[in-house]
Simulated scan of single mutants.
Amino acid sequence: VNDEHPLVLVSLVRAGLPIGVLLQRALSDTDSSYHLPSVHYGISIIRDRGLDPVALQMLLEAYPNSPIVFVDGWTGKGAIY
């Protein structure tokens, strides 16, 4: 992970968005031991359909060599795949 290949945080919109914002804030603090070059996005997720494939493709094309971490704050029964 570096400035050319930042960590890509992808929040699942709704429950994951606030957690992703907090993670991004912690990672961007240059005085913190958690500092890491990163970017943050929110992605739509639709029940019984999954993640937005166009948004996923955009992220893969924009950050081909960056690690991608999905962030969710929901602990439901797994209705979304």
Rank of each mutant, 00 (worst) to 15 (best):
E61D: 15
I43T: 05
P67I: 06
H5R: 09
L7I: 09
A62T: 11
N65S: 08
S11E: 05
R25L: 10
N65E: 11
A62R: 15
L59H: 02
S44H: 05
H5F: 04
R14G: 00
V69P: 01
D31W: 10
D48H: 13
E4I: 01
L51T: 03
I68A: 03
G73N: 07
L17S: 15
R47Y: 01
P37D: 05
L27F: 15
V69I: 13
L9C: 07
Y34Q: 08
M58E: 15
L22I: 07
P53N: 06
R25C: 04
L22N: 14
S33H: 10
V1D: 08
S32K: 04
N65C: 03
T75C: 09
S44M: 09
Y81F: 12
F70H: 03
L60W: 08
G42A: 15
T30Q: 15
D31R: 13
L56K: 06
I80S: 01
F70P: 00
V21A: 13
S28A: 12
G16S: 06
V54E: 12
L22E: 14
L59Y: 02
D52G: 02
S66P: 05
H5V: 00
P18L: 05
L56F: 00
Y63N: 02
V71I: 14
M58T: 13
I46C: 02
D31M: 06
R49L: 09
Y81A: 09
L23A: 11
P53K: 02
L7M: 07
I46L: 08
D72E: 13
G78L: 05
L56C: 13
N65A: 06
D48E: 15
V69D: 01
I19E: 11
Q57R: 15
G16V: 01
V39Y: 07
Q57N: 12
L9Y: 08
P64G: 06
A15W: 02
V69S: 07
M58C: 10
V1S: 10
V71C: 03
I43E: 01
Y41V: 04
T75F: 14
G73T: 04
P67V: 00
L36V: 12
H5P: 00
I46W: 10
S28T: 09
L60R: 15
V13H: 13
P18V: 03
H40C: 09
V54L: 09
V13F: 09
Y34P: 00
R14I: 07
A26E: 11
P67H: 01
F70W: 05
H40I: 03
L36F: 09
H35K: 06
L27C: 08
G20L: 08
P37K: 03
A26N: 06
A79S: 12
L9K: 05
L9E: 05
P64Q: 01
R14H: 11
H40M: 12
